[in-house]
Amino acid sequence: MHPQTIPYEGKLAHPQPRWVVALKRWLWWAALTAPLAAYLIGFLLPLSLMIGFAFRPYSNVTGFGSPSLGAFTDVAASGLIIEAVINTASLSLAVVAVSAMIGFPLGLQFMASGRKLRTLLLIIVITPLLINAVVRTFGWYIFFSTGGPFESMFGLRMHGSMTAVGIALVHQFYAYMVISLLVSLSSIPGDVVAAAKTLGASRFMIFRRIILPYSLPGLVSGGVIVFGLSAGAILAPLMLGGGTMNLLTIHIYRAMLVFLDPQRGMALGTLLLMLNIVVVVLSEQAVRRMRTRSVMKARRSDK
């Protein structure tokens, strides 16, 4: 890379005793492994324990019982929890869809604007991420409260509705969608769009054939992030829904902090984690399939 620089291979001006060198190496490894150990205790250990706990009934009197699917069969047998999973998934999907609907026009405008407007747009988009979540959600609470600004403006009662929660979640998380879309959109070569225009493609055609395929990876990774964050959101459902909303996070919160039923909490936590993993895997497969399909299409049109 820099052929003009010659690595220094000669003796150091002050040769160090061997033990100092050994100590230094040891310190370097200690410095490196300490954060990794903290990470293990703080992240991997609790998660694996959670999955373990979910499969082992525990009581204060007898301690751990033999492994069983008890907590899961309880959860699966309860129509309430199944409904909660469906509610969580559909709410999060709706948030992803709305974020994408905001993200595309915003991203395209962003790419078409000058430096000043770009900076302004980015700051506007990212601002909600840095405002305290309690403050943000409290703001939506006031906005949607009975007799609040929304009700007096539109005459619609939104207090305690899933839509209100959805709007608060979009506000909270759409920036992640915009960010990943921007990364993809900026990879579109400008002359491709220009060429399509000269060949007489309509705006819809350009979007369908150029912009959408190019931004698919960004759309999917943004979607996965927004889905995970929405499915795991606790503040907005608790504050805007009054704690009675049938969502997975509400059930986890109540199992852990209200009813003090940890095994149920662990099983529900595992369920939420699995929901997320399923979404990640499915979306990755979808991207792969679409990519191969577009390659096949290109080959066919070559012939």
């Binding site: 609790p46 795991g232 986890i252 940890p262 909490g265 662990m266 997320n276």
Partner: peptide, 20 residues
Amino acid sequence: LPVLVPLIVLATASLQMWKS
């Protein structure tokens, strides 16, 4: 990885780990 795990899941798991 923590980016992919919902924080509430990690929080629940940590609480239970410390408690048990």
